[in-house]
Nucleic acid binder design. Sequence first.
DNA 1: CGACCGCCATTGGTCTGACCATACGTCAGT
DNA 2: ACTGACGTATGGTCAGACCAATGGCGGTCG
Lengths: 232, 232
Amino acid sequence: MKAYELALDHIEEGILSGRYEVGSILPPERELATQLGIGRSSVREAIRALESQGVLDSAVGAGPASGTRVTSDQSRALTRLLKLHVSLGKYPVDDVVEARVSLERGSAALASTHATADALARLAEVVEAMEAAESIAEFSPLDTGFHVLIAEVSENTLISDLTRAVREALLQPIARASARMADWPGFRDGLNEQHRRIFAAIQAGDPDAAADLMEHHIRHAYSILPMNGAMP
Amino acid sequence: MKAYELALDHIEEGILSGRYEVGSILPPERELATQLGIGRSSVREAIRALESQGVLDSAVGAGPASGTRVTSDQSRALTRLLKLHVSLGKYPVDDVVEARVSLERGSAALASTHATADALARLAEVVEAMEAAESIAEFSPLDTGFHVLIAEVSENTLISDLTRAVREALLQPIARASARMADWPGFRDGLNEQHRRIFAAIQAGDPDAAADLMEHHIRHAYSILPMNGAMP
DNA sequence: CGACCGCCATTGGTCTGACCATACGTCAGT
DNA sequence: ACTGACGTATGGTCAGACCAATGGCGGTCG
């Protein structure tokens, strides 16, 4: 058993068993090291591993605000994880498309039943901004924002996090593929038309229509985007 | 900028830019440290962070098989990540249910169109084993195995990894909830009946039926399981 | 008496240097 | 040509030192 794994297991066990909850403060690194009979650097490596998973957060200084604290900030960690593995080509483009279809059908349907007036207003704003966008550099982040916003409106934290992670992991590849397109303006116009319809379905509170339109939208986009190559 | 973040960014950038691909070997820790002008311990912390995300893998010794190598072994990392955050109560049980519904509708539908004779045989085996299971300790892992197996049969690596991660993150909580049930044998019989039907739909190659049955199955289970409390 | 200011303790962040464990490569000896 | 011992490269680990940030405590001044 490697020393840093000992520390990792110790902290993980504390979390899984409920001894640590969000907000708990871990013992100081030096103390944890002597407790476990290992060096401080090994403890730090374990802390770093968990920190990169959004489970811990460290703060220097003295007093109650300092020390290493248990958090649960998964979104960034999940996004980074997926982005790296997508970039490494672990997932074929078809698989990612199917996953997006499954997830976003769900978020679109949930959004249809949860959307507040405020949420609809924000969605409408993005839809209009996309229609005004001239360049790929302008359009692409808005498009991502549209899908992420729907996931957020669905008020389902897990689906929202997963959707955001998958979509953001594809931001770069999609932008690159768009740049290779012959008739990008036409492609964009088609997407905007679909965005309008999805928005209308959500506004109308029609989950089935929203899900179907979303599925069609995603499949349509990938059937045209030249995503061929190692990068999905 | 913290020193270990410098190393983290350097390595990540190398991966996202394509300079490193799966199988690439990173420079030795000592060399990377001098290259970046930081200490070796900082380099190690960055490596550890990426290793915990299934992106790197270290091996001691000399020769071509040694050193820190780029991999893409996400499954374990993803499972650990979700398990920890589920345990920390970041995700309400209803959210997890909806996410499972979205993901497993997809995997059930895909499995219906991809199932080989061998895959069907393995599924049948699990279904029969579940019907023979007497105790919760016996049944619970088989149940997880059934859902994971369907995800695998779908031949979609991303959906499969996500399904497995979500399902395995719930293994402990589900087992605990089952133990609190009054009429567990009756509950189990109901599940087995549904498992049979899902299997039949996959065997028949009917994606829509498989998806609907899967959704009903998941919602039914959670409507009965006493999952109340912080632990979803 | 109260407010302010500066020292000090605590805690993470980092570096250095050392040594260990492991595995491969090489070279001498058979 | 085979074999075994030794050297070397690499990650794994530790000890110790110092830095940086931060908050608390106590003393001093108004």
